[in-house]
Amino acid sequence: MYEAIRSKSVHSTAAGTTSDFPHRSREEELDIQLAGHLAALLAVTDELRALAPAADLDAAAERLAEQVTRLRAGRAPVRVPVTAAHPEPHPAALHRRAHTLAGRALVVAASRADTAAAILTAERMDAHTAALEPRELAAH
């Protein structure tokens, strides 16, 4: 049996009607999306740091944390303790995941014309690509 809807639709798009929920601008939505991608990249970077500590990963993690904090209006990202990473080594999979996340972040950063985030993500893509390439031994 059909019963008529008695409440106002939350999807009302009629002109001149106001809704009770806040709307975000495109720029705010892109900031949220970029911060999410960078936070995910930071988590993978922290996992890589746990498996193979390196100064460049430490620097990258700090730069990523700074960008996430900036995009989130001063709220620092939640960090994975370096000792909390998975015990089984899987650096190649982590580098591939980090490369993918950096690529997604680069697309959003370019869309919102965020030069600092675009440069950082492009650098991270290059670093993860280099980590995945086989090392050539010079036998000269």
Rank of each mutant, 00 (worst) to 15 (best):
L38Q: 05
T69W: 04
A59N: 11
A76V: 06
G16D: 06
A93W: 09
L94D: 00
A4D: 11
L30C: 05
A93P: 03
K8Y: 12
E29N: 12
D56K: 10
V82S: 10
G36S: 09
A109E: 00
R72Y: 04
A117Y: 00
V80R: 08
A139W: 03
P89A: 14
A43W: 02
A61E: 04
A35F: 00
R70K: 14
A130L: 12
E88Y: 12
A98L: 02
T17Q: 13
G74D: 04
A105Q: 02
G16T: 05
A113C: 11
L34E: 00
E133G: 05
H86D: 15
L101H: 00
I32E: 15
L41H: 01
A65M: 05
A14L: 15
G103V: 03
T69A: 14
P91W: 03
R124W: 05
A84V: 07
A116P: 07
L101P: 00
A113F: 13
A85M: 08
A138Q: 06
A139R: 12
R124K: 09
A54Q: 10
A118G: 09
M1H: 11
S19L: 15
T45Q: 08
E62Y: 08
H37I: 03
R72G: 03
S9C: 12
A127S: 15
A76C: 04
H99R: 15
H90S: 14
P77A: 02
S25H: 03
H128N: 14
D126C: 12
P134W: 05
T83G: 08
V78Y: 08
S7F: 14
R124P: 01
L71R: 00
V10S: 13
V44L: 08
A54N: 06
V107R: 06
D114V: 07
T17M: 13
T69H: 04
H99C: 08
E29L: 15
A122M: 09
T45C: 10
R70Q: 08
S25V: 04
V10F: 15
V10W: 13
H99F: 09
D20G: 14
A138G: 10
A131G: 04
L71P: 00
P81K: 07
L34D: 03
V68P: 02
S19T: 14
G74P: 01
R79N: 07
T83P: 02
H95W: 08
L38S: 04
A139F: 08
G74W: 04
P53M: 03
E66T: 12
I119G: 07
P134T: 09
L106E: 10
R24T: 13
A55T: 10
S19D: 10
D114F: 03
S9E: 08
E27D: 15
T13R: 11
P87Y: 04
D114C: 10
A43Y: 03
A102L: 06
S7L: 15
E62K: 14
E62S: 14
S9L: 13
P53F: 04
S25W: 00
P53N: 03
V82W: 02
R26Y: 12
L38D: 01
V68L: 06
A93G: 13
E136Y: 01
A105E: 01
A92Y: 07
A14C: 10
R79C: 06
R24A: 15
A65H: 02
A52G: 07
V107Y: 02
T121K: 00
P134N: 06
